[in-house]
Structure formats: C-alpha cells, structure tokens
Design a protein around this nucleic acid. Structure first.
Lengths: 197, 197, 197, 197
DNA sequence: ACATAATCGAGACGGTACGTCCCGTCTTAAG
DNA sequence: CTTAAGACGGGACGTACCGTCTCGATTATGT
C-alpha cells in the first residue's frame, strides 16, 4: 500500500494516516461505499487529497485499508467443543461483516472484480485470516478426537462465511429470526455435516 | 420496470429492448459492473440514452434487468434422492452465478445497499426463485421420507447459495479443485447436515 | 473554436455561450487573467464545466474568446487629416487595450507563447483588425496627398500599438501625464515621422 | 531578493545560486514562462525547493532574477549622430528582449499585474536602465545641437521599446523583413519624429 | 574542541485548479 | 409518442503545482 521507499526527505506523518483512516471509516458508516468520495475524506480528515494519493493508488485502496482494519479477526478461545468453537467463530465473522463492513466489502469486490491484482490483495489480506481461524478450530476438534477427517479447509470456510454473508446481505429481511439464531443454527448444521459418518 | 404508460402514439420498438439487453450483457462481460456506463451501452446498442431511461429508472435497473435474465433458474427434475436433488440445484445456482453474474450481482447489492426499495426488488426477483427451488427439493425429500424435519427454509437456502457465491467470488483462486468438485462436496455436506439426527 | 459538427442532437444553447462570455469578462475584471478559474466561471455562469470544455479546448481559449469580444476595433471616421486620424485610431487602440484588456492579452501571449498554433490564432483575430485600420488611415492620407510613400504597414502598426501597450503596462506609473496626453503626443510624433521628407 | 540575514551558521553555497539561475534559464528556453515550475527547476538544478524559497519569495522573483540577468543593457558608445545612437540602442534593446526574454517578461508582467509592489520592482529594475540609456542618447544629441527640445523621456522611451516588443511578440511572423531591418527603420522614423520642426 | 546556527537535498504537507468522465435530464428534428 | 443524437447542470476523479514544513546530514563561525 504505502511506498516502502523512505530514504531521505520528510517522513510521513502518522497522524495523517490515522486521520485518513478515521475519516474514511466515519464516512463509510454515514454514506456507505457508494456514497464516499475522496474529497470528502480529505476534508473530513483536514488534509489534502495529495496526502491520500501519496499513500493509496485510488479510492478503492483507501477504503480497503480502512475497512480491513475493522475486520481483523482472531481464533476464538477454545470453547471445549467443535460446535461451540464454530458458533463462536461464526459470531466473530458475523460481527466483522456487520454494517458497514459487508456492503463495503461487496462494493470493493465488485469494483475490483476486473483487476486481478487488487482482488488478490483483498483476498490475501482479509480471507486468509478467516481461513487460519477455520484451520485452528478444525485442528482443535481433531486433537479432541471429534473429527478424524474433514472435507478440506476451503469447503468448511465457504460453508461458514458464505451463509453469513448471504444472510446479512439478502436474507436478513426475509427471515423471521435474528442474527444470533441464524448463527447458532448454522453452527449446528455445520457440526452435523462435519461429524456425520 | 417498464413504464406502464403506453396508450397512444408510436409503440416501443422491441428491437431496442433487445439491443439494450445484449449491449449491457456484452459490456458487463467486458468491463464488469464497475466499468459499465450508460453512454457506452447506448453507443454499443446503437440507440439513444433516452431510450434506456424510458425503460429503466437508472443504471442499476438496466443492469439488473439484463443480469437476471441470465439467472433464471427452475427446480431441477426429481433426481430420486435429496443428495442428488441438492447437487443438481447447487449446479444450477452455480451456473446462474457464473461470470459475469456473481460480480454483477455483488456490484448491484453494494450500489443499492442504502436504497431499501431497490434492494427489496432485487431480492424479490432473484432470491425468491431460488427459495422456491429449495422448498421444492425439501418437499420432495419429505415426501420420500428422507427428512422428517428441517431447520427452516432460510438456513438451507443460505447454506446452499452462500458457499457457492463465496467460492465463486473469492475462494475459487485459492482452492485446488474445480467448481464441480466443490458443488458435489457442498451437496454432500448439506445432505449430512439435514439428515443427521 | 466551437466544433463545426452540428448534425443531429440537441443544439447548443446560445444562452450558455453568452453566460460563459459574460462570466469570464466579469471575473477577468475582478481577478485578472492570473486569478480567473474555469470552476469560478462555470459557477458564476450557472452552468457546468462540461459546457465550457465542449466549446473551448481550455482556459486560454475561453478567455481569448471573451477578451477579443471587448477588443473589436474599427477604422475611425475620417478626421480630415493624417494627424487627426492617427490620434483617433490611437485613442481607439488605447481604449481597447485598457483594463482589463492589456494584462489579459499579455497573460494569453505568455501562456501560449510556446504553442505556435494558438499564437497564430490570437494574432490573426486581434492584430489583423488593427492592421486593417492602420492601412485604411494611411490610404486616406495618400488620397489626400499628405503621404507619397511610407515605410510599410508593419512598422507603422508597431509604432502605433507598441508605445500604447508599453505605456499602459509599464510607463503609466512613471509618467506624469495621462493617457490622453500620451496618445496625442504619440500621434504627433508619428505624423512627423511619416511626413518628414 | 536574497535575505540579508546571514550572521552565523553555514553560509549559502554560491554553486546553488548558479545552479538555480542556469536551470531557470534552461527551462524558460524549453518550456516558456507558463511551462516552468519550481519543482522542475529544483530537480534540474539538483537542489531542494527550500534552497530556492530561501533566496526568492516565489516563482516570479526566481524567474525575474534569472531573466533580467540576460537583459542588462548599458548606453551604447557614442555613434556620432542621434540616428546612429538610436539604432545602436534599439539593437541593444532588441537583443535584450530576444528569446526567451520577451515572452518571459510578458508572463511576469501578466502574473504580477495585480500586485502593485512586484510590478514596481520589475519596472524599477528593468525599465529604469532603459530609461537611463534613452536619456543619455538624447543628452548627446542635445550637446551635438541635433535637438533643441524633445517631447519628454517617457514618450521617446515608449516609442523605442514599444515597437520592438510588439514586433518581437506579434509582428515578427507577419513581417517579411528581419529584426535588423525593422530596427533600422524604427531608428530612422524616430529620428525624423524628433528632429522634425 | 565543541556548541550554535544556518545551510543542504529530499520529500511530505494543506490547498487549489485543472481537464476528464459519467449520471440522469432535456431538447432538437425525423418518423 | 418514439427514435438517435447529443447538450445540459452537477459532481467526483486523479494529476500537477504552489509555497511551507520537517527530516537527517553538513559546514562554517564563535567560544
């Protein structure tokens, strides 16, 4: 993101970095991904546009940098069982994707969907953390003896994140239940799918 | 979508409708949702912009109309078992979401995420069809005696569509397998989850 | 300046042309050539920037079009003598170059001095009119018998316009006299130079 | 121009002064007044921008300092007659204004035309030298008895510099003759104007 | 010898304007 | 009333300069 070059000259002011990130997050929350503008971020942050474009190649990178910061996720503490671990992880993922995260992430994916390099960067930054959490949870289950095998990391990851994303985006308004109920049901179904012989 | 007013005067030219739809789809494939412009569609279609805005309320509606046409799905013929039915349905959904469907749908969702009315329209047009297919497949399983109960339509729908969407968008590049393998694994896991006691 | 293409489509709105020209002239008078901006012109005129860039290739062309309109010059009515004709013409030129004309013209010359094509266009539009006036005045003198020969159109033109421009730009603040006095002295000296054997 | 403060500390490096001046002149010749930038001068000179702003209050001063260095003129040696003196002086002035002098001077005048103080500084530095030369030439003529009276320093100055500036800027491309011919004609006409009874 | 102080190149800073692009609307003439 | 063409007001984009500032390093002078 930032240029690694920092030989001579005045160093970057970290207060500017924070001001950009904070302003971006505020405006994402207020106006959403579609409604954010670089000029508005600069004005809100009290900085010049050049300071933004010195750090990020464009609006997408700026938003990405601000958004992923809200989406940092860590493996949940061991809950004692696969079902409880999955429920905890699902709750974490759901929280990280909640407003304004999900639409922002979606807008980003849509915006960069024809830019393979940018897509890869987003994937690597955001998805890899989730993937590592999934791997940790499955490892624990294997160590407990709950699982002797599983269908692979990617399907489990997809079955965990995909339904949550879909529910938040589209099904929330259809469903009669709330997010907690959905997440619990999801963890339950996923546990069955993995532990069924 | 189209204006209901069409009393007297020259009737709309249906070739214009088709030209708009075809041009939109071509440009979606070439440039993606973020890269498409109304001017470009009009030029490619050899028509005027007014002809588009007479039919659609905006860019989003135009794209939506063109995109959902590729996404119409119907309940698959009875495959004899829940597992096979789920696999067939998953395959149909995966196909309907394949390029350029998924990023387009995402861009639309992101664009309209702050417009509740438009969001509802997209949801109702696109998701209801899927939901009906899921219901049909579950009904068949119930009639066969494979299922005595299930956790509700929405969770099953989410567990079917969500992982496919996520895999197409993000995990495809990580996974070693192909779409068919993933879809089969998904149907398998889902069957276990539903039929496990 | 304007594109000659005008086959189909909505025609240019002449009120927009006038609004641009008026706003440009007002802002030139208020802020000078260096202080004018395209955004300010658009705002003052109550139009979009695109309407300006549809007509002019850039700021320079816009300013030029507005400035030359103020600088139209015509041969003065026959004053009965070369001296009186020159005095009248000098007065006209001085008026056409007076604020904000002279600095504007200068800024333009400086701005485009490395663009031979633009320079030629300015020259042709502005200087040719003056040159024709000089020619007319010399012709009259020849018909009256005041002149049997003259050193050429260009030197006379230069001796008329050059001193006025220089005085307005630089010497006005040094000189004790006013513009009228200077113009009279100039016409007097020029008459002597031309009629001296 | 330069700050008078220079009590303690590291003294200014005169190589920096020369590098600035040379780079400014090179870039003026290449890109003209409108095309020159402070960053470009600094880069070309291999120095930092601060070194420029430590010496000059702004771009205009920097350019002015570099440009007038090419424009210093002195009274020509006595040529024995008013006509010859004027021709020699006209030639000197023409040379001092030749590329890139004239457009640069113009750009400066246009840029500072709303800044009375800067305008005065340019005028005093540049025009006063010319004015002194004109005075010297007229004095010689008076001492020779060629002139008993003249219309004042300012008109003569305007009639000498103005036509040359105008010719260089605008008429050069129209005229069939060259600068030498024009300068000779100018000196001739000016002599007639001054010596005619 | 060593602190003081102004210099140096490099480059980030807040601003401002540029010229381009697109949106959704409006205005033509032709059919 | 629809059509193709295209101008309209509005507004965001990303770039380029301006003149200021901050960094670490250098280079003289005054003690």
């Amino acid at each position: 993101m930032s240029s690694p070059k920092q030989a001579g000259g005045r160093p970057r002011d970290s207060r500017v970095d924070h001001a950009i990130t904070r302003a971006t997050r505020e405006l994402l929350a207020e106006a959403g991904y579609a409604g954010i503008t670089v000029d508005a971020v600069a004005e809100r942050a009290g900085i010049g546009k050049a300071a933004i474009y010195r750090r990020y190649a464009g609006k997408q990178e700026m938003v990405f940098a601000a958004a992923v910061h809200d989406m940092s996720i860590a493996p949940p503490p061991d809950q004692g069982s696969l079902r409880a671990d999955l429920a905890a992880l699902a709750r974490d993922i759901a929280e990280s994707l909640s407003a304004p995260g999900a639409p922002t992430l979606l807008g980003l994916f849509a915006d960069v969907s024809s830019d393979e390099a940018a897509l890869t960067r987003i994937r690597d930054t955001f998805l890899e953390r989730e993937r590592a959490c999934v791997a940790e949870v499955l490892d624990r289950a294997a160590r407990r003896g709950e699982l002797t095998s599983h269908p692979g990391l990617t399907p489990v990851h997809a079955l965990l994140t995909g339904p949550i994303l879909t529910w938040l985006l589209a099904l929330r308004h259809t469903d009669t239940g709330d997010l907690d109920t959905f997440v619990t049901t999801l963890a339950d179904l996923l546990t069955k799918a993995l532990t069924s012989p």
